[in-house]
Design a protein around this nucleic acid. Structure first.
Length: 569
RNA sequence: CGGGGUAUGGCGCAGUCUGGUAGCGCGUCUGCUUUGGGAGCAGAAGGUCAACGGUUCGAAUCCGUUUACCCCGACCA
């Protein structure tokens, strides 16, 4: 492609709306343009990248025998009423009416449609297992679209659905998808992790997420290098500490802690480490009232774990002022478990502390040298907190690491949730009707493009992994408009590379060298060749990799072989 | 949906408090010069100041209504 023919300007200044690197760089490099909140046009350069992700994904889907289909983007309401999700999916579902006042939604996912297909087409266990996939535009009416195409309302997803006679077959196919997804992200050159995940609204039992590792990721994931444990932080168990709890020491006493409502203030004032200072949260209980949760000062409550307790209301909500006042005669900063008559759960780590500090349930007072079993009853323990770096791995192979990730894929074993709701059955070998087992598997195509940029960029621009780059080589011809030698050499190299099948972006614009070099860095093509009058005088071209700090000269006549050697897969 | 904010040429912004008929940088176009890290000079095009209504001799500016967008919270590929 000749840049002189691509009428898309790169932006020197960043539009004010862009908060994160990928959004900024995609706008500046002209990969996408915004139409409205959460709606983006994919411009030529960006679309090439999206299509690479699509292509690699398709190839891996076909490799495991999935059949590509294309289902409608618009779905009739009846189908979604049948599954119960016309209501359950909530406002994320974009609903609309046609001229006959019939109700439809724009599909945010396709379990209903594919299950309808399956119940019509699949009649016998002999047809199973089978899986279908599509690459298609989805619409989710997100409350707050943000981060450009990372969380847009309209986006492209590759979604697959598998059908099985039994759970064993489902598990086997699920495993194949996990491997296929891993191959997709490996081939794209992304650093990623597969982690255990919560199934959320889609339902079903087991699910795993694929996260591209990036510091700007919205999710936290935990894993252990010494075993195969890996989970979304919301699911990662925080194991009880090992060993015996220390013996009680000095007798419990009261300390004056005026106005100190945070763990940090209390710990500093009493000269105790934060882990010795237990904090207590009052949260709303199912059916009214409150439940108390006690954790070590440095730990964070885990919402999924907390709401898993029978008494705790979903979603997790802190008690309001009235509820706190009802439970204790002090402000929230001075709450503690001693003498409190509220259902109380204590995190394993907090239950392991001896001689700890906690609120006294009196304004401006804390208790010091408190001990379970001495100053108050032995606690009812539970896992309430987020795991932290260095915690013991549930897999037993060492300690946990924590990193940020961007969720680009999610695979589920759905079981019979949809096949039951929509009565999708086949006859088994005994001629009996059986609800099919289902799996579903999503991969965010457009989000993967943004995630790749989050993981691979520097202050100058994007650094595409080789496999995702919209072009392999950028050919920068300096002062081509006024130097016939440069023009001839550049045109010739462009033609040679093209004839060898190399995807080359030819910067033949009549622009200053600074502009061209800056744009080459911004767009992020891995291999750069500069043709200049200066070099040609010595019969050389200049080569530089986007990740390298230094350029090297190469003979003008060996450029094609040189590049081919570098581009070899 | 709750809270906060913004809306002025393609992009980034000033002007609004204190009303007087719109300006800067980047980009675009023309010409000359320059040419290895976002060039210089000269000239030019481009704005119903988000929309509607009101106050006023006069509104980007004051008042009211509406809309769009952004940021912070709960969701997801």
């Amino acid at each position: 492609m000749r840049l002189s023919k691509l009428p898309i300007a790169t932006l020197r200044e960043t539009p004010a709306e862009a908060e994160i690197a990928s959004h900024r760089l995609m706008l500046r490099s002209g990969m996408v343009r915004r139409l409205a909140s959460g709606l983006f046009t994919w411009m030529p350069m960006g679309w090439r990248v999206a299509r690479i992700v699509e292509r690699v994904t398709r190839e891996e889907m076909e490799r495991i025998g999935a059949h590509e289909v294309l289902m409608p983007a618009v779905h009739p309401a009846e189908l979604w009423r049948e599954s119960g999700r016309w209501q359950d999916y909530g406002d994320l579902l974009l609903k609309m009416r046609d001229r006959g006042e019939r109700e439809y939604c724009f599909g945010p996912t396709h379990e209903e449609v594919v299950t309808d297909i399956a119940r019509r087409e699949l009649k016998s266990y002999r047809q199973l297992p089978v899986s279908f996939f599509q690459v298609q535009t989805k619409f989710r009416d997100e409350i707050r679209p943000r981060f450009g195409v990372m969380r847009s309302r309209e986006f492209i997803m590759k979604d697959s659905y598998s059908f099985h006679l039994n759970e064993e077959s489902l598990r086997e196919t699920y495993g194949r998808y996990r491997e296929a997804y891993s191959r997709v992200f490996e081939r794209l050159g992304l650093k990623f992790r597969v982690v255990q995940a919560d199934s959320g609204e889609i339902g079903g039992s087991k699910s795993q997420e694929f996260h591209v590792l990036a510091d700007s990721g919205e999710d936290l994931i935990a894993w252990c290098d010494g075993d195969d444990f890996a989970a979304n932080l919301e699911l990662a168990p925080a194991l009880p500490p090992e060993g015996q709890r220390a013996a009680p020491g000095a007798a419990m006493s009261e300390a004056h802690t005026p106005g100190m409502r945070t763990i940090r203030q209390v710990a500093a004032h009493l000269d105790r480490p934060p882990e010795d200072c237990l904090k207590m949260l009052l949260v709303k209980a199912e059916g009214g009232g409150v439940v108390a949760l006690v954790l070590c000062g440095q730990h964070e409550v885990n919402e999924l774990k907390a709401t898993g307790l029978p008494e705790v209301a979903k979603p997790l909500q802190l008690a309001n002022a009235q509820e706190v006042a009802q439970a204790a005669a002090c402000p929230p900063g001075f709450l503690g478990p001693v003498g409190l008559r509220v259902k109380t759960y204590v995190d394993h780590a907090a239950a392991h502390r001896a001689n700890f500090v906690c609120g006294a349930n009196r304004r401006d007072k804390h208790l010091v040298d408190v001990n379970w079993g001495r100053d108050l009853a032995e606690p009812e323990t539970a896992d309430l907190r987020n795991a932290v770096e260095g915690d013991r791995s549930p897999g037993g192979g060492g300690t946990l690491k924590i990193a940020r990730g961007i969720e680009v894929g999610h695979i589920f074993q759905l079981g019979d949730k949809y096949s039951r709701a929509m009565n999708a059955v086949v006859l088994d070998e005994n001629g009996a009707e059986r609800h099919m087992q289902m799996g579903c598997y999503g991969l965010g195509v457009t989000r993967t493009v943004a995630a790749a940029i989050e993981q691979n960029h520097d202050e100058r621009g994007i650094i595409w992994p080789e496999a995702m780059a919209p072009f392999s080589v950028v050919l920068v011809a300096l002062n081509m408009a006024r130097d016939e030698n440069v023009r001839a050499a550049a045109e010739q190299l462009h033609e040679s590379l093209r004839s060898q099948g190399v995807e080359v972006l030819f910067d033949d614009r009549d622009a200053s060298p600074g502009v061209k070099l800056a744009d080459a860095d911004l767009i992020g093509i891995p291999h750069r060749v500069v043709v200049s009058a200066r070099g040609l005088k010595q019969g050389t071209l200049e080569y530089k990799h986007r990740r390298s700090d230094t350029a090297e000269d190469l003979g003008a006549d060996e450029a094609v072989e040189f590049l081919q050697a570098r581009l070899a897969p």
